[in-house]
Amino acid sequence: MLKAQDIMTTDVVTISGSATVAEAVALMTEKGLRSLIVDRRYSEDPYGIVTETDIVYKVVAYGHDPKTMRVYEIMTKPCIVVPPELGVEYVARLFANTGIRRAPVIKGELLGVVSVSDILAKGNFVNQPQRPYIEDEIDAARDEARRICAEQGATSQACAAAWDIVEELQATASHNRADRALS
């Protein structure tokens, strides 16, 4: 399985929370970035992020002057961070569940930024879709099969069909594991 560190963008630029929004825009335009990571003020301080969306939704939409507004007024801090070894499918699920599109990748220090664009461009979900909770699905299918067989008898058609489902899931899971070993 691909991990966050395999697809993240390592070209990261940070900005101070006290910088103006105009400075943030200049930095993003100059570096061709869609988000900036907000510097921590000390080592226990959480990371923050400011995105294009923050600027358009909170500054441009209201005609505020970017030269007088500061990054800390529109940033998201603390922000959701991703560990480098998190699987890409889990990154996608985390993004979907929390409604975010990008997050810093952090392990002790800032390593990169991972975004929906990175998942789309560098992920392998088209050729190797991975159901992140397949082991749980197998456990559930096994419980279900046992229940059906206890109720309807071990030789019943329903019992055989229920175990077929378990086997199919197991085959998918081992196929995924083989893919993972190869990649």
Partner: peptide, 11 residues
């Protein structure tokens, strides 16, 4: 990403 990749559905 939200509706396909996050659920491991086959695109």
């Amino acid at each position: 990403i939200y509706k396909v990749a996050a659920y491991g559905k086959d695109p």
